[in-house]
Structures are given as C-alpha cells and as structure tokens.
Simulated assay, not measured.
Amino acid sequence: MKQLAIFSLVFLFVGGCTKFGKNMTVKGRVLNPITGEKIPNAPLIMYRSTLDYPSGKKKVKETKTDSEGYFEISKASLSKCYLTCNVTEVGDYYPIGWEKKDDIPLFDAFTISIKKGKTMHADYYAVPYGELKISIHNVNCQGANDTLIYKRSYVSLNGISVFQPFTLTGCYDNDGVFAKVPSGEYLVEWTVIRNGTSNDYTHIVSVPANGQAYYNIDY
C-alpha cells in the first residue's frame, strides 16, 4: 500500500506537470539573411510577464547561439513566455527581428510569443552596419529654381525603411559626411528639374559590412 501511495503521488506530480506546466521549445538560427553569415554567441532570453519587477519582465531561461549561429532553448512553465535576442551585444548589428512566418506568433518584430507544449522553429535576422556618404553638387547651376529630388531605399530586404527623401533647391554644393547605415544594397534615385525640364536618374550603391561606400552626384 505504501509503494502504491508513492507511485500515485509520482503519477500525479508527473501528470500535473504535463497538464499544467507544459514544456515549450524554440529552435533556430541567428544570421545575416542577405549573406547567410552566422552570428555566434548571440544571447537569447526567455521571459514571462510579471508585476514583481519594474520592467514587467522576469527572465526564466537564457542561452547563446553556437559557432554556427544555431540555438535551442526549452523550459517547462505555467505562465505565458516570450523570446527575444540581444544581437547587439555581440557586434555592431542592425536588428531586423524574427523571420515572419505564419506558424510563428510574433508579439512584435523582436519578440516571439511562445506556444505551450510545442517545438517552434524560428530564425532571427540582423545585418552588420556600414557607412555611406553621398556628395551632391549642382555643377551647372541656373539659379534659385534649380531643383533636385533625392530618394534612397534599401533593396537587399523588403520592409526596411532607413531614409527619408528630401528636396534641394538653388546652387546646392555639399560633400556630405559618412553616415552609419545597415550594410547591403541601396537604390539611389534623383530627379533634376531645371528650366522646366525634368530628368530622372538611378544607381545601385553597395555598402559593405563594417566598411564604407561613397557616391557622388553632379547635376
């Protein structure tokens, strides 16, 4: 009878954990989605919401990516949990966030809402920064009505907006300065309006990871 009672208690404990404290697992990789370059040693933190901390979050598990950028994190929990990645702790990266897939419930672009009792597969994206300098010179100025409309868009990945277009007038002349931007390819577009005539131009500028790119516009 004593052994039966102990077995019953163990059964109830295991059954209770299975029923109420379901295991949750996330597997994936942290990488540069443009080049496929791995990002090792990136910290991934699983946390739950709580009123016990000023931040409203309590860390329940942490891991890091291996030498190939892969990770696996698992935890049995009664509470709803979330997963984030602090890729900026291991390098100068522009964080893009989790890959958007139908079976991955995102709390926001940088946070996964983990499913209880499930093994999820999710990749986190980030690209290194580089520097870009655009120099603009009106070398054929006809007066104050000369106009240049400048646009720049990031074309290596969809959904990243890193620059606002602007309009220049008159005899503009500026060498520009290097600015920190996500590495990758940019579509540079500009329109010159002079004496009632409009001309459009385009060019692809590649910014290397941790390097510099320079482009000059003479109009």
Rank of each mutant, 00 (worst) to 15 (best):
D102E: 14
D103R: 01
D103M: 02
P105Q: 04
D108N: 15
T111Q: 06
S113Q: 09
I114M: 15
K115W: 05
G117H: 09
G117P: 15
K118S: 15
T119D: 13
M120H: 13
M120K: 10
A122V: 12
D123H: 13
D123W: 09
Y124S: 12
A126M: 05
V127Q: 01
G130P: 12
E131G: 09
I136W: 05
N138D: 06
N140G: 10
A144Q: 07
A144H: 02
N145I: 02
D146G: 04
D146R: 00
I149N: 11
Y150S: 07
K151N: 15
S156H: 07
S156D: 08
L157Y: 06
N158C: 06
G159K: 00
S161Q: 09
V162N: 11
V162T: 13
F163C: 14
F163M: 13
Q164T: 15
P165S: 14
P165I: 13
T167S: 12
T167R: 12
L168R: 08
T169H: 13
G170R: 06
Y172K: 03
Y172R: 03
Y172S: 06
D173C: 07
D173I: 02
D175L: 02
V177P: 00
V177N: 10
F178I: 05
A179Q: 12
K180I: 02
P182T: 07
S183D: 02
G184M: 09
E185F: 01
L187T: 04
W190N: 03
I193Q: 08
I193R: 03
I193T: 15
R194P: 04
R194S: 15
G196K: 02
G196A: 07
G196T: 03
S198F: 00
N199C: 04
T202P: 01
